[in-house]
């Protein structure tokens, strides 16, 4: 029962912070809402037996990525946002988007309620960092290397893009 209370609280907090991101008028606030959402996500990971991912989530997402976001927001001086105002010919954008969102959620709810599975698996798998590391370097070495290359390419790309061409 406590599990359910914890999960419900975390879920509520998560949705609330996401809505905060969606609705806030200030980019800094939006970023902080997102940080909160990521932190809540990390806690849910712990509940779901994924401690390694929880740590990575905090350090990479809430730490590195969001710091980068806030840095850019401040660099550009773009924290104040103009109120949303649809350009002519786009008046259907907002109602259609919301309707589609509701539709998507209804379908998801229908699928989970009508065809939801049985109770969770009985035994928990070993998800310690050691186990994940073994998986990574035993079964996923090639994707791992590819990802390394991808990061390098992204780094070079970012440098090239932001370089001032005189």
């Amino acid at each position: 029962m406590t599990d359910w209370i914890v999960l419900g609280l975390l879920g509520a907090l998560s949705v609330a912070s996401a809505l905060g991101l969606l609705l806030s008028r200030n980019a800094i606030y939006a970023a902080l809402f997102l940080v909160l959402n990521f932190v809540v996500g990390a806690v849910i990971y712990i509940v779901l037996n994924a401690p390694f991912l929880a740590v990575v989530q905090i350090s990479v997402y809430a730490g590195a990525i969001m710091v980068l976001f806030i840095f850019v927001i401040m660099l550009l001086g773009a924290e104040r946002l103009t109120p949303a105002e649809n350009p002519p010919g786009l008046s259907y954008q907002r109602p259609l988007a919301i309707a589609l969102g509701v539709l998507a959620l209804s379908v998801a709810a229908y699928v989970l309620l009508a065809r939801g599975g049985e109770a969770a698996a009985t035994q928990a798998v070993d998800a310690s960092p050691t186990a994940i590391g073994v998986q990574l370097f035993r079964n996923y070495v090639f994707p791992f290397e590819v990802v390394a290359l991808l990061l390098l390419a992204a780094m070079v790309g970012a440098v090239v893009l932001t370089r001032r061409t005189e």
């Binding site: 786009l90 259609l96 589609l100 379908v107």
Partner: peptide
């Protein structure tokens, strides 16, 4: 062709949901 990225995104979302409905 409205030229607005968001608008293109909207139709992409529409397509994704249509695919979801088909699959479900």
């Amino acid at each position: 062709q409205t030229g607005f990225v968001r608008n293109y995104g909207l139709f992409m979302f529409l397509g994704a949901i249509a695919m979801m409905l088909y699959l479900v």
